[in-house]
Amino acid sequence: MSANSNQRPETGGFFARDRAWHAPALTPEYKTSILRSPQRALLSLDGTISEITGPVFGHSMIGELDNDLIHNYARPGESAIGERIIVHGRVLDERGQPVRGALLEFWQANAGGRYRHKKETYLAAIDPNFGGCGRAITDDDGRYAFRTVKPGPYPWPNGVNDWRPAHIHFSVFGHGFAQRLITQMYFEGDPMIWKCPIVNTIPDRRAIEQLIAPLDWGQTIPMDARAYKFDIVLRGRRSTLFENRLEGN
C-alpha cells in the first residue's frame, strides 16, 4: 500500500453523514432487512484517528485485465456474451474534489441476469467466459473506467414476482475508513428501477436518481461499445485549520 500523490494528505474529520439521504436500516418491503436491522440508536462519534485514516491501495496491485470484465475471465481469444458497454466516471467528495487513488471493486450478473455464485439458482445460463468481477483505482482527477457487458435483470425471492433492475454493484474506498461505501448503479431508462424494493429503500427520489447512470453518447465508441457515466460522491472532509491538534501532530 502506498500513497499515489505528492500532495500533503488531509487529516480533517469527515462531514457528518446525512442519514436521511440513505435508506433506513429497517425497510420492510425488502424483507431481509427486517431481522438484520439494528433497532437501537447509533452512537454518534465524530471521527477519531481510527476513522479518518484508512487503507490505501497502490496502482501496482491492479492487473491489466482487472477493469475488463469482457475478457478477465474469458478463455484466450474468446469474450463474454452481451451488450458491450463502458462504465466510467469520477469519484468526488462532497466538496466536489476528486478522490484520487480510490479503489473501486465492482461485480454484476451476466447478460442473462445470472450470477456466478453457488447460492444463485436462476435458470438463466451461465456464461463460461464471464466471471463478473473487476476493479480499478482512480487517477489524479478521480477518474476510473471499465469495460463490461450490460447485466440482465433477474428475479429474486422477496415478493412473489420481484425483479431486480439491471445493476452493477460498487464497493469504494476513499481516504478514510469513515468514507467506506457500497452501492449499486442502475441504467438510464430502465422502467424496473422504480418497481424494485431494494431501490425503494432509499426515501428520496433525488437520491435514487443519483444511482442512475446516463447513457454517455460522447464517450460511446463507434462500432464497439456504448458508454454510461457514473460519478460517485464520498463524504467530504473538513479543513484542519481550526481543529484541535492531535497529540504529537
Partner: peptide
C-alpha cells in the same frame, strides 16, 4: 454533491470482494 446513497451489498458480495472465496479463480 450529496453523498452517493448506500445500497445493500446483496447475497453475491463475494463475487466482487472475495472472488476466490466463491470459486471465481484466475481473475485476481
Amino acid at each position: 454533491l450529496k453523498e452517493t446513497p448506500s445500497q445493500t451489498a446483496g447475497p453475491y458480495v463475494h463475487i466482487g470482494l472475495t472472488p476466490n472465496y466463491c470459486d471465481i479463480r484466475g481473475v485476481y
